[in-house]
Write a protein that binds this DNA or RNA. Structure first.
Lengths: 233, 233
DNA sequence: CGGGTTCTTGATCGGTATCAACGGCCGTGG
DNA sequence: CCACGGCCGTTGATACCGATCAAGAACCCG
């Protein structure tokens, strides 16, 4: 039981749950369903309504399933993230583990009912959603108005911010997702992603090693290539 | 002063503000800045931070300004909507009136500080944000994975839902936005939008009259063309 | 070391952008 | 009320980026 209570512990911290003994916290922890997802396996939610997820450990992709074999990855998430899985509307959504994952699953409506009286939790959720909305809007700009080369730069810079480790002037990335995932996230094909990586490699902007390791040698070049507003850090 | 207090009245109703005499409501109403926007004019926010907008009357577009002349319209909003304008990050954002507009403008951070103690308001905001996030995610799918013809169908169906008036089996739309706006919202060019309208006209799926009036004659055809998940209403 | 998956590279195709010109709607001023 | 003029929308011709089709190479696992 030790590991499981740790799971709740970190979650409680992340949503600013009140002191450990509060009855509200008790009830919310009972509501959460701990789930283990093996790498590559995905959480099919059927029509269970919107869910709130706390990702205790690992990384996941949130996939919108459009018709046929056309999937769009809405977002990647990493250890410690809290996020919403929407109920299926015009598309169906699922969460898929990129590696082994531990997560806590709450039915969104019940969670909100319980949290209704606790401004701290609500405020925390608003913060999470503001963030998710900001990211989704930036993604919309990238998908609507950017070329393949710009999208790749945006992707690499975004990953650098979230899971990169600085190494002098360079940033080292150990990407948990495949080229296919990158393509499905950027609205491109796997071949185009591969070609863009090759171009960046030839320009010495990045180095790669194996399938997952990427070293960003020239961040300023990537920023220029990302097509961001001039003068942005 | 009568019209202005009506403005606050409808806003208070929309965010579930407490009884009229509450001091919190008083303070929040003092925080809101009423703004009139003439059609075509836009609200430049400089670096004023994130804003919360209540659209009392009219319709607006929320525009992300990427480099050069490449704008992406993030969302359209209509009378009664409450929404966030993000602080500029990698892009700068502005709100532009499609026709004459009345709106209430709040600095998001101050608003949240004030609302911190009122679970009803917070809960209302979460509802607004869930909605915005759902729409933004659907837009991401459209921009990432859909053809021009699918995007147009998605757009028309979305507008039908929000501002359409039923007329027998058909739906009548009086679009407040130009072809250019539609194009910038869908990640297409104005020419492509025009061509798609022509195709739909030739197929009798829609009729148009003047620049703004569109009649959707065949909703089921549009749904089929939108590339939604099979079996969705 | 072998087999399957993932990634890379090459050749071709197609959809949408781009460039260019025309036509029609609508507000303005006579 | 009508005439004018500008903007918005439509249509056509061409170009280009990225998708698709196809094959080979590298990586990772057993």
């Amino acid at each position: 039981m030790a590991t499981q209570s740790n799971t709740f512990e970190t979650f409680a911290h992340s949503v600013k749950l009140a002191e450990p003994t509060s009855p509200l916290r008790q009830r919310i922890c009972e509501l959460g369903r701990p789930v283990h997802l093996a790498g590559g396996s995905s959480l099919e939610l059927e029509d269970a309504g919107a869910q709130l997820v706390y990702l205790t450990r690992g990384s996941t992709k949130l996939v919108a399933h459009a018709s046929e074999a056309r999937d769009q990855i809405i977002a990647f998430h990493f250890t410690g993230d809290t996020y919403w899985i929407p109920a299926s509307d015009n598309y169906s959504y699922s969460v898929c583990a990129l590696g082994d994952c531990e997560l806590l699953l709450f039915p969104a409506d019940t969670f909100l009912e319980m949290a209704e009286t606790d401004p701290h939790i609500l405020r925390g959720l608003i913060g999470q959603m503001t963030d998710a909305l900001r990211r989704c809007r930036e993604k919309a700009v990238a998908l609507g108005r950017k070329t393949a080369s710009e999208r790749i730069a945006v992707f690499l810079l975004g990953m650098a911010e979230r899971i990169g480790t600085a190494k002098g002037n360079a940033v080292v990335l150990d990407l948990p997702m495949s080229r296919r995932d990158i393509a499905e996230s950027l609205g491109l094909t796997i071949e185009t992603v591969s070609r863009q990586f090759t171009i960046l490699r030839d320009a010495k902007t990045i180095q790669t090693s194996g399938r997952s390791l990427v070293i960003l040698n020239d961040l300023s070049q990537l920023r220029a290539q990302a097509g961001y507003l001039a003068g942005t850090a």
